[in-house]
Design a protein around this nucleic acid. Structure first.
Length: 415
DNA sequence: TCTGGGGTCCTAGGACCC
DNA sequence: TCTGGGGTCCTAGGACCC
C-alpha cells in the first residue's frame, strides 16, 4: 500500500516553495472545514474536519497558510503519481485519489524493501509529492505497515511488516480504532469487550466476533493473521453516481434551486456517460442547514423512474426539476441539494422497453459531442441553459490557488 | 453567520413464490 | 388448542472508507 502524505497540502506546497515550513491547511468545499493538514498543522493540534470559522484565530496565530480546495490541481497530480506508479508493477489497484495497492507477489522478498525505496524516490522526483509505503501479506496489515512507516518517519519511506520479528509488539502498539475497517462505532464496541489493540483483536475467536459484529469483522481478524480475505479489485463501473453540493449562500427561490439541481444533474450525467452507463432511476434531494438549532431541519427527496434507461442530460434535468417543483416550500432557507443516479446499466446491449423509447441516436450523438467539446476546451465550454449563468448559489472558494497544471493561463512562470 | 462530498458492503425484515 | 418449510428479491438502515 502506497499513499501520498497529506496529499492536498503537499500538492499546494509543490507550487509554493516560498511557504517553507509554514503550516498548510486545505479547506473543504465552501471553505467549510479543514480537510487536509501538513505535518506542521497536525503538530499544532488542529484537528481534522474542524470548521474553519472555529479554528480561524488559532490558524492566524501560528501563521498558517489556509487555501480553498483546488480539485483540478489535486486530480491532475494524482494522475501523475498513479501513472508513475504503474510503471513499477502491472498489478495495481488505484484505491483513492491518493492511495494505491501494488501486487508485489511475484518479486523476490529479499529485494522488496530496496524496490520500495526506488518507488518512493521516483514518485517524489517526478511529481514533488512525498509518499509512504507499507508492505505486508494482506491489505489490512499493509495499511498498518504504512501507518508505522509514517509514525516512525522511516528513512526511505518504506516499512515491511513481513520482515518484522517483533510482530506482536508492533501490533500491540496499534489501537483498534487505528485499524483500517474499524470506525468509531466498532472501536467503542471492541473497547467495551476489553479489546484495545490490534494484537488482541487478531487473537480473538472469529466465530464469536462474527456473531457479535458481522462477517466483515471476521475477515478483518483473518487479515490481521496474515490470511488474505480482501481481493485485489478491478476497476468496476460505479453502481450509483452522486453529485451534491452545499450552496455558497442559502437559497430561498425556486428558480435558483432548479438551476443548482440542473448543474448537479449535468455533472452526474457526465460521469454516467464517461463510464458507458445509462440510468433508470434518479433521486433529487434538498435540505436546510443542520447546525442551527433555531431553524427547523427540513429534508425532502423525490425519486423519478424512467421507462427506459437514459443518459440524456436533458431528460435527467427535466425529471429532476419536476421533482424540485413538487418539493419546494416557500420561505425555507435551503443549504444543499443533490442528485443521485441509481439502477445503472451498460449502454451496450441495453434492454429497451417495449413501449418506452430509449435514447435516440440523435440524442447519443448530441451528448457525445457536448462531452467531447467540454473535454477539449474545458468544462462548461458548452452547458445547458437551465444551469444558469450567474450561479448566485455557487460555491464559496475565497482562497483558491491557481490551476497550475490544467489551465494555460495559470501556468507558473519562472523568472 | 459560517460546519464537505462521494462511495461500498452487509444485515434484517418484509413481500412473495412454490 | 393446534396453523409448514424453504427459497429469492427488495429495501432501509447501519457500518465503514477516503
Amino acid at each position: 500500500m502506497i499513499d501520498c502524505n497529506n496529499f492536498y497540502a503537499s500538492c499546494e506546497r509543490v507550487f509554493h516553495p516560498a511557504w517553507g515550513h509554514r503550516p498548510v491547511g486545505v479547506l473543504s468545499n465552501n471553505d467549510g472545514c479543514i480537510v487536509a493538514r501538513s505535518n506542521e498543522l497536525k503538530d499544532a493540534g488542529i484537528p481534522m474536519g474542524v470548521p474553519y470559522f472555529q479554528a480561524k484565530d488559532q490558524l492566524a496565530k501560528i501563521n498558517a497558510v489556509v487555501v480553498s480546495s483546488n480539485y483540478a490541481l489535486y486530480g491532475d497530480l494524482s494522475a501523475r503519481v498513479m501513472n508513475t506508479l504503474s510503471q513499477f508493477t502491472p498489478e495495481m489497484e488505484v484505491y483513492s485519489i491518493d492511495e494505491a495497492w501494488l501486487d508485489l507477489s511475484g518479486f523476490n522478498p529479499a529485494d522488496l524493501d530496496g524496490y520500495g525505496r526506488d518507488i518512493t524516490r521516483t514518485i517524489k522526483q517526478h511529481t514533488g509529492i512525498p509518499v509512504s509505503m507499507g508492505i505486508a501479506p494482506t491489505k489490512v496489515l499493509a495499511k498498518i505497515a504504512n501507518r508505522i512507516c509514517k509514525q516512525r518517519k522511516i528513512p526511505g519511506a518504506v516499512f515491511n511488516l513481513g520482515n518484522e520479528k517483533a510482530l506482536d509488539e508492533v501490533l500491540g502498539a496499534i489501537a483498534v480504532d487505528e485499524i483500517w475497517g474499524i470506525g468509531s462505532r466498532w472501536g467503542k464496541g471492541l473497547n467495551a469487550l476489553g479489546i484495545d489493540n490490534a494484537r488482541q483483536l487478531r487473537d480473538c475467536d472469529t466465530g464469536q466476533m462474527r456473531k457479535r459484529f458481522s462477517v466483515v469483522m471476521e475477515r478483518l481478524i483473518l487479515e490481521l493473521r496474515g490470511i488474505p480475505c480482501l481481493e485485489f479489485e478491478d476497476i468496476a463501473p460505479k453502481k450509483q453516481i452522486i453529485a451534491s453540493r452545499s450552496f455558497g449562500e442559502r437559497v430561498t427561490e425556486l428558480p435558483d434551486l432548479k438551476e443548482a439541481v440542473s448543474s448537479y444533474v449535468t455533472r452526474a450525467a457526465e460521469k454516467l456517460r464517461a463510464q458507458g452507463s445509462a440510468c433508470r432511476l434518479l433521486q433529487v434531494s434538498i435540505r436546510t442547514g443542520r447546525h442551527n438549532p433555531k431553524e427547523q431541519f427540513v429534508r425532502r427527496s423525490r425519486q423519478i423512474e424512467f421507462g427506459a434507461p437514459t443518459a440524456d442530460t436533458r431528460k435527467l434535468i427535466a425529471a429532476a426539476c419536476q421533482g424540485v417543483e413538487q418539493m419546494f416550500v416557500p420561505g425555507v432557507r435551503y443549504a444543499k441539494a443533490g442528485v443521485m443516479l441509481f439502477d445503472l446499466v451498460p449502454v451496450d446491449g441495453m434492454q429497451l422497453g417495449l413501449f418506452e423509447p430509449g435514447d435516440s441516436d440523435k440524442s447519443q450523438v448530441l451528448m457525445e459531442t457536448v462531452d467531447r467539446l467540454n473535454r477539449l476546451y474545458g468544462r462548461r465550454s458548452l452547458f445547458f441553459a437551465s444551469e444558469g449563468i450567474q450561479k448566485r448559489w455557487g460555491m464559496k472558494r475565497e482562497r483558491m490557488t491557481p490551476c497550475y497544471t490544467t489551465h494555460w493561463e495559470d501556468l507558473p512562470t519562472v523568472q
